[in-house]
Amino acid sequence: MKIVIERYLKESYSQTFDVPLNSPTLLEALNYIKENIDRSLTFSSGCRSSVCGSCSISVNGTPKLACAYKVQDSDTISPMRYFKVLKDLVVDHQNAQRTIIDSKSYSTPLELTPNVSQKQEKLNELQSDCILCGVCYSACPVYETNEEFLGPFALTRSWRYVSDPRDGAQKEKIDTIQNSGVWDCTLCGECSLVCPQGISSKDDIIKLRTKSTQAGYSDPSVTSFTSMF
């Protein structure tokens, strides 16, 4: 099987590798190339079981986990979009992870921890499955025009804590995600299609919009539209 890899070291170049494996995952194929053909091929990996979020990568333009994808003949593998490439398939995740801080998507514990009901726990069971692989970030077309966008995984994380009765700063979180946040999303749903954990950031953003409206905020694009009349 032939695999095309878009590589990068000082400049971009493309290289084709022949991998004599039967139905490997993409990660197995990359490991094979590194151990047997070209030891300079550079990529990240860890658990190989879809839970550490290290091996996210772009396959024919769609971001995926290399460990969870059965590679096909003549697939083109490249580093994820909207991330700075460090070498070959390795990208810098630090800027993307800053969005967690920028959106204040962390717990602010209350003095006394309240009980969480089974129903309340279900509100963010799926959202807390996030593995921070960055796949949703790479699929988000908003980054084409707005680098400041808080983005899908940070907003899903925001929902996780906003929906948690143990959090003492829910209003502050809603306040924080108004600029370059919930209203900047186009609701295209690309993030939901690619998430390896089946999380829909789009749905979480819609829920956060409802919370924002309840807190007195409104969609700024609609406001400016009506003010024209």
Binding site: S107, P109, E121, N124, E125, R160, D164, R166, D167
Partner: peptide
């Protein structure tokens, strides 16, 4: 207290 989403 810090928000680990334990099953209930």
């Amino acid at each position: 207290s810090i928000g680990v989403p334990f099953s209930r």
